[in-house]
Every structure is written in C-alpha cells, then in structure tokens.
C-alpha cells in the first residue's frame, strides 16, 4: 500500500525514522523543488542515493572525495568511460590505486551528502516504492540510519528555532537604526551580501529568498544571522494590514475523574458490551 505524501507534513528525518523502525526495503522517491532524489534502503539501512541527473559515477564520486586527481579523473573518463562502477572499482583495487575502504567510504560520503541536502527540502512529494532498487552496476553500501536521523533531528530543531525567531517570511527587513553600524566594516558572506542587497521595506523575506533562489531554511539562516548581528530588523511590509492578535486555547484543566464503581461490576459490564458488539 501507498507510503506517500508531502514533505510539508512528513519530514525527511521522520521518513528515515520510519524506514529504520520498519526495516524497509525499497526506494524513496522525492520530488523536490528543483530535483528528484532516489534514496534506496535494504532492511532499513541506507544502500544508495541519487540526486536528479547529477553525474553519480564512481569516477566522479572519487574525484569529489579527492581520492583521485583531476588528471586521473580525466584519464578514467576517457579510457574507462564504458566500464560499470563495480568494474572500475575492482580495477582500481587490483591495480593498487585505492583500497576497498577508500571506495566504499567515498560512496558512503557521497550518499550522506545527498541526504544532508535533502534535509533542506521542506516541500515536495514523496513516495516509497518497495520494488525499486538501484541499477545492478552501482556500488551500494549498508549504512545504519541512526546517526543520520540524529543529525536530521538536530537540523529540524534548528529549523524550529529559526521558525520561532522568524515566524513569517511575509515580513520585510529594514536596516537597524542603531547609530554607528556601518555595513562597510562588517564581514558578510556572499549569501548574506546577496540578501542585504535586497533589503527594502517593500520586499518581503519570501521575495528576497525567491530572488536569490534560496529555500526557506537558507533564507531564515541568513536573516537570523543578520538579526543577531543587529544589522537588520523585522518590519511590516509596506501596505500590509495590521492583523488582530488571537489568543491560544491550549491550556486545559486536568482529567475528569471516572465514576467509581465496583470492579467486578465494571468487568461484568464490559463483558456484556463485548457480547453485544459481537452479536451485531
């Protein structure tokens, strides 16, 4: 039966937790904002991950992990372009260039990096396909999910904190009116500068994120750091009506006491109910 939904309702961490607890085998397909990811599991352990059409060949993975040089990478691509990942791996081990640990470690790191990227996806459809496994020629791993789940939970906590600090992306930003703050003397990252360049009471944070192609988490991180540094303040966007303050109804009195009756009588009563329901 279908295990599908939207990341808005069920996060990547929760999905990993579910796969881990249920010891699932199959692939999770996630259609994110810009890409489609496939994450495959065997008996609840991470086996494989792929992101969109990104080149995930072994040669590229080893190059990314600095296990081979750019020159070696080019030679492999030229001479062993038609080799499968498994064949290439064996060749490199037998030739003494790399150990099995080097290769498996690199593949593992590559898959983990994809999962980390998925943590930033807050929206997107997912479905679990029990029958979908990675292509035969791909190298797979058997990685326990616990550490990834813990890492994801930490990130989720960060997201929640950021959500608390910046509850709405429909607010605008304005430069702090603190005297003495001079942006020229502040060391900002490229991302922060990109956000700063759009600060204007007319632009909502959401619009700034869109202009910079940043997801919710990324923009919240940048805005939070700017807020913490005292460089900017949250402001109501120009033309936005003032919303009424609503009160929460979460506080509730304690449990109502159950009517006290004889225990045997209660049991007899429940047994009568059971007989009746059975006879329906």
């Amino acid at each position: 039966m279908a295990l599908k939904g939207n990341l808005r309702d069920f996060t990547i961490t929760q999905l990993l937790n579910l796969v881990n607890l249920a010891r699932k085998t199959g692939s999770l397909i996630i259609e994110g904002p810009t890409d489609v990811a496939q994450v495959t599991f065997r008996d609840g352990k991470l086996a494989f991950a792929r992101l969109g059409q990104t080149d995930s060949s072994l040669a590229t993975i080893l190059h990314l992990n600095q296990k081979i040089t750019a020159g070696q990478y080019r030679v492999i691509k030229e001479r062993a372009g038609k080799m499968t990942d498994k064949e290439l791996g064996l060749l490199l081990i037998n030739a003494g260039y790399l150990s099995q640990e080097d290769i498996l470690g690199s593949v593992q790191q590559y898959f983990i990096a994809i999962i980390r990227q998925l943590y930033t996806w807050v929206d997107g459809f997912f479905r679990f396909q029990p029958d979908l496994m990675p292509p035969e020629d791909k190298i797979t791993v058997r990685l326990d999910l616990e550490n990834l789940i813990i890492e994801g939970s930490r990130q989720m906590k960060e997201q929640e904190q950021l959500q608390e600090e910046i509850p709405s992306l429909d607010m605008a930003l304005k430069f702090s009116e603190r005297p003495g703050t001079n942006l020229r003397n502040v060391s900002l990252s490229v991302e922060e500068w990109r956000v700063v360049s759009y600060i204007n009471p007319k632009n909502t944070i959401r619009q700034i994120a869109k202009a910079n192609k940043m997801n919710d988490l990324a923009i919240r991180r940048v805005v939070f750091s700017l807020l913490q540094a005292g460089l900017v303040q949250l402001a109501r966007p120009e033309g936005m009506p003032v919303a009424p303050v609503t009160s929460s109804s979460s506080s509730r009195p304690g449990a109502a006491p159950l009517p006290v009756t004889n225990k045997e009588e209660q049991k007899s009563l429940v047994n009568r109910l059971i007989s009746r329901i059975r006879s329906l």
Binding site: M1, A2, L3, K4, F10, Q14, L18, L21, A22
Partner: peptide, 15 residues
C-alpha cells in the same frame, strides 16, 4: 484501509 492511497498500518503507527 480499503483505499489504494492508504498508508500501511505499521507505517501509520511509526508516523
């Protein structure tokens, strides 16, 4: 549970 879109009971439990 009669719907093809239904999550399995164990999955709902974990969720």
């Amino acid at each position: 549970q009669d719907s093809p879109d239904a999550w399995e009971v164990e999955d709902v439990k974990h969720a």
